[in-house]
Amino acid sequence: MNPNQCRVVLRPRGPLEVLDLAVRFSRESWQPLFRLAAYMVLPFVIPLAVAAWFLEGHWVLLLAPLLLGPIIQAPFTLLGGRLLFAEAVPLWPMVKDTLRQAPVLLSGWLATSVALALSGITCFYGAPVAQMSLMYITETALLEQAGVGRGVSRSLRLAGAALGTAGVAAMARWGLLSWFALVGEAVGQSTVGFILQLGEPFGSLFGGQVTPFLLTGMLLSQPAWAIYRLLLYVDVRTRTEGWDLQVGLRAAGLEQ
């Protein structure tokens, strides 16, 4: 990636400011992001709605968006990365590139899951720490084309260089997930119950059921988290590797 061409201003930011930047970035690039969401999120909504109907909103359904999360996030990471440097990005070549890195991504996610499980079993605080440390694996695999080993070590180094950022980001991840889920539930219930006057055909969260609206909200939080994490990755690299300095020094060098 050439930071000279980056569409966002490169400067050190805090994790909450990066979240604001993610909001602006997703607004500016809403068309390709929405188009990709139509390909990556909608196909999962209908099967999950059917499953919610047959399982009568069993809590086990909550695991589905979490397990599908990495699959949904990966193309958004790559799309976001390309949109940082280009106005228009064709979607299919980008999806193909994501698939090409699929073995590395799957191995990375497997490594993350094993680390989460082991650290969660051995130590109460282990799982969040493992999650924070390995949060940039998708970025290193897709944007740096790193293998599993190098990706893990890069993610550990980046997260370790900005531990506070990783901590806030881990909390923000669950915050985003909860917010999207609850807003999804509220919008869905309002539409079906109040506007269409159909009552509660799928039950409701407050009745203890997992509804398709809640699951849709959880699925939609995955692209948001992917874009936020991508910009966190850019920010951490700016702070620890001086991307903004690279731009400034190169510009000054060219003026000589």
Binding site: R239, T240, E241, G242, D244, L245, Q246, G248, L249, R250, A251, A252, G253, E255, Q256
Partner: peptide
């Protein structure tokens, strides 16, 4: 120049957060 002074000053202020190799890599640009 004013811009040169500003960017070198920023570089020196943030130097401690950069590794030696990365700092030299950046300095090579100017």
């Amino acid at each position: 120049g004013r811009d040169e002074t500003a960017i070198i000053e920023t570089f020196l202020r943030r130097r401690r957060r950069l590794s030696d190799e990365r700092a030299e890599e950046l300095a090579l640009l100017l």
